[in-house]
Amino acid sequence: MSETQRKKHVRWVEEPELGFWESTFVPAIMQGLKTTLKHVVDRKPVTQQFPEVKPELPLHYRGVHRLNRDEQDRVKCVACMMCATACPARCITIEAQAAPPEWPDRDKFPKSFVLDELRCIYCGMCEEACPVDAIELTHIYDLTGESRADLMYDREKLLSVFDRTKNDPRDPVRTGRGKLGPASEFVQLPAVGPATTVPSSDRSARAEAAGVIRTTGREGQQ
């Protein structure tokens, strides 16, 4: 950086000059007292009285998980392990079992599904990963337990969270697509386009490597 550039970018700031009244401190202190006194007299506390007044959480708040049920009250989960794989905290342990013959829409279901709520970082990756929208995060924030074992949420506990929250307007069942979810109804995989439209001039639209699913946009260009 040249000298002139340096001079242009560095701004020299002088401390404000202290005159007679500033040197005596008194007016500044009075001014400060006026400000604080104004708050004492004209009180508008911003504190929420928690146990009596529940906080208004944002709609995207991520709290305790639930396992959704389908219309026949079966667990929606198909034990695909996507959530357990996506989980950065590795707090989900799933044991899969072959689905009984009267459930023709799936191959597997979770024999046991244990989620360690203490280990979870509530990032919501499991919800993102789930192909059948079986696991969702609710608005329950006051999670307590008397022991660590209490907070190992198994399948039944997670299903009971669903029963508790399904009628809460803040925790709607966020999917109505198909019996299990959109992924369960694919007969064959459609060509997958990018989540956002990529202009054909973009470098990423032109890139082609082995194993990359060809984008519809690129086909259109050809």
């Binding site: 708050h39 004492v40 009180r43 506390p45």
Partner: peptide, 10 residues
Amino acid sequence: KLSAWMQDRV
């Protein structure tokens, strides 16, 4: 109490 009131707390 006074400090709380000054800082808009309860």
